[in-house]
């Protein structure tokens, strides 16, 4: 596997259609974060097939949906047309967000951070999120955690683990995806090391979730 920053985006281009079919419903944690929140501009960073952009569209006047995979963006465009919601699709890197400073009021950054490597790039991505959030803006960040059942037997020294998780296409071909699986304490430490203000965090269904704001 090449150590290539484009890897996750290109990997998802190969599995986009099948992956999207299996990602129909939004996660309840995202719906509860958005409950009672609203803003002018929403951002779905690592939008995949747009299932969370769709939920976000009910809470923001405009939703910008960013993903590194143009294949997944095509899936999101199809979903938006079929389900009748508006979103501005943009191909972009979560570690080099192509949005101006302070432009975003409400963001979700779900199940994407764990595809970035190395750690400096993950922290850089969190700093980018801090940059684009408007004063008073809020974001939900989630990442896969070592507390997930899948990793119950894996030892971790508190620094999480780097692994490759295969995606099996209908024809049987497997495509490996890089994951950095977060130790919960490490997730908290990375957020604190970033320019984001960490407001609250929790573990739910094997994932770490944090509510964050821009640095004050």
């Amino acid at each position: 596997m090449p150590d290539d920053p484009a890897h996750a985006g290109h990997t998802y281009d190969r599995i986009a259609a099948h992956f999207s079919e299996t990602r129909e419903y939004p996660w309840p944690e995202i719906e509860s974060f958005l409950d009672g929140r609203s803003g002018a501009v929403g951002l779905d960073l690592g939008c995949g097939n747009g299932r969370h952009a769709e939920v976000l569209a009910a809470h923001a006047d405009r939703v910008v949906a960013v993903d590194a995979s143009t294949g997944l963006l095509a899936e999101a465009a199809e979903r938006a047309a079929e389900h009748g919601f508006e979103t501005d699709l943009v191909a972009g890197d979560a570690a080099a967000i192509p949005l101006g400073a302070g432009t975003v009021d409400l963001a979700v950054y779900v199940a994407t951070l764990h595809h970035l490597r190395p750690r400096a790039r993950r922290i850089g991505s969190l700093n980018e999120l801090a940059r684009v959030l408007a004063p008073g803006g809020r974001a939900l960040v989630s990442a896969w955690s070592t507390v997930h059942d899948r990793f119950a037997d894996e030892g971790t020294d508190g620094s999480g683990l780097d692994t490759e998780v295969d995606w099996t296409l209908p024809g049987g071909e497997t495509v490996g995806r890089f994951y950095h699986v977060y130790d919960p304490a490490e997730f908290e430490a990375d957020l604190k090391a970033s320019e984001l203000a960490l407001l609250e965090w929790e573990l739910s269904s094997g994932n770490c979730y944090a509510v964050v704001g821009p640095s004050e």
Partner: peptide, 16 residues
């Protein structure tokens, strides 16, 4: 392209 701006860093674009 196809109505979607590609604002990926140049070294992350398809074929890069």
């Amino acid at each position: 392209e196809d109505g979607i701006p590609n604002l990926l860093p140049p070294d992350m674009r398809d074929g890069a």
